[in-house]
Design a protein around this nucleic acid. Sequence first.
DNA 1: ACCAATTACTACACATGTGTAGCAATCTTG
DNA 2: CAAGATTGCTACACATGTGTAGTAATTGGT
Lengths: 209, 209
Amino acid sequence: MTAASATPRQRRPYAARVPIAERREQLLDAALAIIVRDGYDAISVDAIAREAGVTRPVVYGAYDGLRPLLEALLDRQQERALAQLAEALPPEPDLTDPDRLVAETAHRLIDVVRGDPMTWRPILFAPFGMPEQVQARIETDRQNFLTQVTGLLEVGLVLRGGPKVDAEVTAHAILAVLEHFGRILLAEPERFSTERLVGTLTTLLGALR
Amino acid sequence: MTAASATPRQRRPYAARVPIAERREQLLDAALAIIVRDGYDAISVDAIAREAGVTRPVVYGAYDGLRPLLEALLDRQQERALAQLAEALPPEPDLTDPDRLVAETAHRLIDVVRGDPMTWRPILFAPFGMPEQVQARIETDRQNFLTQVTGLLEVGLVLRGGPKVDAEVTAHAILAVLEHFGRILLAEPERFSTERLVGTLTTLLGALR
DNA sequence: ACCAATTACTACACATGTGTAGCAATCTTG
DNA sequence: CAAGATTGCTACACATGTGTAGTAATTGGT
């Protein structure tokens, strides 16, 4: 047995002891980091534990498994995203100058995305290929936003004297452009400056008569 | 041992014997079906074998593993998609009537997507969250298409007397709209008819002055 | 400085997927 | 209709991930 005791499998050093609430946040951060860095396929309780520098039972102590953890992450990120969106959207839209309104709103939206890529990258880049639950959640928020845009469009286009268009389909188109701008912004931040993107939007909008 | 022989683990009935080339196609079909039905996360050699009604060694006989198989699938689907695209794009664009040209091209593109959802669903719905290699491939094709559109835009907008815009960013916007239309088309075919989508495009384009 | 509560770790049983060696069935050709 | 070639199946060893019981370290209050 003396030979066996030569390698006493030294115990892993204890990770810092942390109250459970804080640990939960830390685990969500770890999960998000994995998603952003390695993609959704790489997520597992094991990977999250490794990323956070703890062992799996610690994760199971904080959440009842991968599904609930991701659910919590989704809650948190959704809350963050919606809060940032609410801050970027104008509280009292000044409909007397719609073009300016759109330009400034777009500018703020772009800054929001640029300011918190960890939150927006997964939302903009991976709405598909994710668990159904996640997709459904994002889709609901999208629909809400879409409805708002559709409403604004209907009012705005009339006030502004634009063409008569299918407001719903147009809202889809606008949202698609905004989302894609968010993506190319995150992918090549220096190539697609805020000014360039807002400028194009402004020009296109201004040409709509 | 008599008790054990009561359940002689009856041999699995042999799957139809198939020459290797045909088997390969069949396996690619099985993989595609899984991706469309259950998402990329559900892909494994095991799942493909099950889907095709054979055992894993059969898969390993046809391909050297999951990676090469998916590579082959990517090749095939890319070829199909590009062929369909080439057929839908006008060989000799009639630049004297750009609006009409755009409308008819859009119409054909929509029909192409509607006509082969198995091919287009993964391309339109899952460019992200997929293996890097796949993303890279799709991104390359996108860039090509983007370059073409950018070129057409530069010529077309001048001939047509449209506004002076950033052609590259505008091309991104157009492509984003087309892709999103493809998605909502596949998601709710009856809600978003071809006419509705093309109509909106035509109206918006007509209003650009 | 100690003890109890809290928190973290080890170790195990199980599940699913990978890749391969060796055997069994089927098909083809003479 | 009988080999031989071809194709498919079974069974195994291994790898990675899940979830949990039991044990050990840490920490805050006395």
